[in-house]
């Protein structure tokens, strides 16, 4: 492989990871507040459709992104609303919404299938894109990809370093303790449920407006929502690890094309399955790493202990449960 193709691969990995990062970080934010929004797969499709239809009819890509993010936020709000005010299980509502939003997207978007609509135009950053190697890989994309760089740094900073981020984590970990400190857990869950949904909506728009530009059935982003949910777990609810997971998945996805050339008997979807066994495996490790006996056993085995500690993170303690005083 020469330099050029390596650069192209890296460039496409960066671009392909962008919508997944939006979706996975959006879901991480929602889950940090203790709400699990299972509807991602449907939400992404619905917002992808919205983005395409809006920007097709108005000609404005920006308006497409804007409406898609509103749709994403709205779907997430339904989950939170059902959970807080009707006390219906978040999982049940999320699951029903997954299917409903998907079908709604296909239904409403049907007249717009296979039309040529506006796309986000590439915008190489002057000077930076001229840098050898990294210029093409990192700075010859469109503006959404650049926003994505800023976004993951900002969301990491927000959650780890700001008082608001601490309040968010506090609600997901121990809403009673948060309440005793004058924080209103329900309000926080509504806010961050919406915010997380907004980013999931942006992920959907990214698909229909540049990654897999256009609308049709299948659109090409089916299954991404589940992958984003899996990546949140894989990353242990930690923004930087989730982002690493996203790039890892994107790498697998892009390499799938090459693997297919090397092993022609394997269809490409086989490689796309790879993150799921990985997710299950990491969940088992998370469980194992918290087992007292295993901890005892690995006390003087440095390598294993290091490995266990890397995985020894846990979900927000109050994830998926309801809070009331």
């Amino acid at each position: 492989m020469n330099d050029f193709s390596a650069m192209m691969i890296l460039s496409s990995i960066i671009a392909a990871a962008c919508p997944i990062i939006f979706a996975a970080i959006g879901e991480t934010i929602t889950e940090k507040s203790g709400v699990i929004n299972l509807s991602l797969d449907g939400t992404i499709l619905l917002s992808a459709m919205t983005a395409f239809v809006i920007s097709y009819s108005t000609g404005s890509v920006f308006l497409g992104f804007f409406m898609a993010s509103l749709v994403g936020g709205f779907v997430a709000l339904i989950v939170v609303f059902f959970s807080i005010y009707l006390r219906v299980s978040q999982v049940a509502v999320g699951f029903v919404l997954t299917l409903t939003c998907r079908d709604l997207a296909y239904f409403i978007g049907n007249p717009y299938s296979r039309l040529l609509g506006p796309q986000v135009q590439p915008l190489p950053i002057p000077f930076l894109s001229d840098l050898p190697f990294i210029g093409t890989a990192f700075f010859s994309h469109n503006v959404v990809v650049y926003v994505c760089y800023i976004f993951f740094f900002f969301s990491w900073f927000y959650i780890e370093k700001t008082p608001m981020g601490h309040i968010l984590k506090a609600v997901g970990e121990h809403p009673h303790a948060a309440y005793s400190r004058g924080i209103h857990p329900h309000r926080i869950q509504l806010i961050y449920g919406f915010v997380g949904g907004v980013f999931v909506g942006i992920a959907g728009a990214s698909y229909s407006l540049f990654m897999k530009a256009g609308w049709g059935r299948p659109q090409g982003c089916e299954g991404i929502g589940w992958i984003a949910l899996a990546l949140v777990i894989f990353g242990g609810w930690n923004i930087s690890r989730v982002v690493i997971g996203c790039y890892l998945f994107s790498f697998l996805q892009v390499m799938g094309i090459f693997f297919q050339q090397w092993f022609p008997t394997f269809p490409s979807p086989v490689f796309q399955v790879a993150p799921f066994p990985l997710m299950i495996f990491s969940l088992v490790i998370i469980h194992v790493s918290q087992n007292d006996k295993i901890r005892e056993w690995s006390k003087d085995k440095n390598v294993i202990l290091f490995f266990l500690n890397r995985f020894s993170h846990s979900a927000p303690a109050h994830l998926g449960k309801r809070f009331h005083v």
């Binding site: 299972l38 999982v91 299954g223 589940w226 949910l229 899996a230 777990i233 008997t265 394997f266 269809p267 979807p269 086989v270 796309q272 399955v273 799921f276 066994p277 997710m279 299950i280 969940l283 088992v284 998370i286 469980h287 194992v288």
Partner: peptide, 30 residues
């Protein structure tokens, strides 16, 4: 995976769905 591995049945089931999907594709194409 749920009882011994501590994996929530939703994610275990979902993951295995995709694995089964991969398996059937491999069989049909292989």
């Amino acid at each position: 995976l749920k009882t011994k591995g501590g994996v929530n049945e939703i994610f275990a089931g979902l993951g295995l769905n995709f694995v089964a999907q991969g398996l059937i594709l491999w069989l049909i194409f292989g």
